[in-house]
């Protein structure tokens, strides 16, 4: 059972995502319209599989799969694909889907390379539901903020194509500017809400478990910086402080900054934890 959950199923999903990525380049041609529909269906099927796998693995492990870097990566991959499938249900993302697809493949392959099995009993703090929920909410929130960055990048690409009158393939095959803007704003708002809850739960844990204060506080500083940045971004978007194109650019920059902070924060946290 362990081999099935940690190797066979993730490997099969990886193959499935790779096949879809290979075929996604064509769907915007007329001959590919039917193929696009079948690819979307296949994507939904894979979303169901990856979601079930994540739940199944949580039940099998009796803890959310966020205990090792491999599990974290797999959880982010799950969030990315579930989010993408939901977004596709609302708006046809067309060629833009290539980006989350590639991201899922890289994340899943890295998760498999890093190993999904903990190989030992899980540390007490990670089995603790408060910590697990904090981590899961953070990952989901971060994924959504990253998604807003991707949609922001899409807006910038389309904006440049429209401004420069270069009506290339991306001009035809991207979602409309309005759809991209809507997706970016929804992702940003949802991500901000999840990260806010996650930070609140972390502060609660800090108050309830003084023993882990040393590790948690050092992790909390970059996360609070991140939260403050995202809150400022969300407020700027919500109250239209900046023009739409500037907001798209700022979303992209914040996403990049966030990736940097996450790498510093999470890697540092796990290094200290397992040391």
């Amino acid at each position: 059972m362990s081999g099935l959950l940690t190797t066979v199923l993730p490997l099969m999903m990886l193959i499935g995502f790779s096949v879809i990525l290979g075929m996604w380049n064509a769907p915007c041609h007329p001959e590919g319209r039917k193929r696009y529909t079948s690819l979307v269906l296949s994507g939904n099927f894979l979303a169901a599989i990856i979601g079930l796998w994540w739940v199944g693995y949580s039940l099998f492990q009796r803890a959310l799969p966020v205990a090792t870097p491999g599990q974290l990566l797999a959880t982010v991959a799950t969030c990315v694909w579930l989010g993408t499938s939901y977004a596709e249900y609302r708006v046809s993302q067309r060629k833009l889907t290539i980006i989350p697809l590639a991201a899922v493949i890289v994340l899943m392959a890295s998760a498999l390379a890093a190993g999904l099995n903990t190989g030992q009993d899980l540390p007490e703090n990670l089995v603790n539901p408060r910590a697990a929920i904090h981590i899961a909410l953070s990952l989901a929130g971060i994924t959504l903020i990253l998604g807003s960055g991707v949609y922001g990048a899409g807006e910038i690409i389309l904006h440049r194509q429209i401004k420069s009158r270069s009506f290339g393939q991306w001009f035809h095959d991207m979602p409309s500017m309005s759809d991209l803007n809507r997706l970016r704003r929804v992702s940003l708002t949802a991500g901000w809400i999840l990260i806010t809850i996650s930070i609140a739960s972390a502060l609660g844990t800090l108050w309830l478990m003084p023993a882990s204060r040393e590790v948690t506080v050092s992790h909390l500083h970059p996360m609070l910086t991140l939260w403050a940045t995202i809150t400022a971004l969300w407020a700027a978007d919500r109250f239209h402080w900046l023009a739409q194109q500037k907001m798209a650019l700022v979303s992209l920059l914040v996403s990049a900054l966030m990736v940097l902070l996450i790498i510093v924060s999470v890697i540092g946290f796990f290094t200290r934890f397992f040391a």
Binding site: L158, F171, M174, M177
Partner: peptide
């Protein structure tokens, strides 16, 4: 076409 690329619907 341009209007649709910008506004969608």
């Amino acid at each position: 076409k341009i209007a649709e690329r910008i506004f969608g619907e």
